[in-house]
Amino acid sequence: MLLIPCPFCGPRPEIEFVYGGEAHIARPADPSALDDAAWAAFLHTRSNPRGRHAERWRHLHGCARFFNVVRDTVTDRFAEHEAGG
């Protein structure tokens, strides 16, 4: 059970959260300006690193907010967190 640092509520057990995938993949401001490949990259391509991973969690059964954290995908250690999307 991961202990996930919610920036609003403090560390809470994993079962209170839902995972939101890789962070910092912003929806393009004007999707129609993207060609198919660029749009597919936004939709589907992920960095999927072995190691530090910036990712989103939502504290569903707490403050219900999304936030970003950096977690090591090998050791499961959390490095830092930041609010917002």
Binding site: V18, G20, A26, R56, R58, F66, G84, G85
Partner: peptide, 13 residues
């Protein structure tokens, strides 16, 4: 609701 919250909080805050 999860999808809406995602857009509301993270794409269009």
């Amino acid at each position: 609701l999860g999808l809406m919250e995602d857009y509301s909080q993270t794409e269009w805050p």
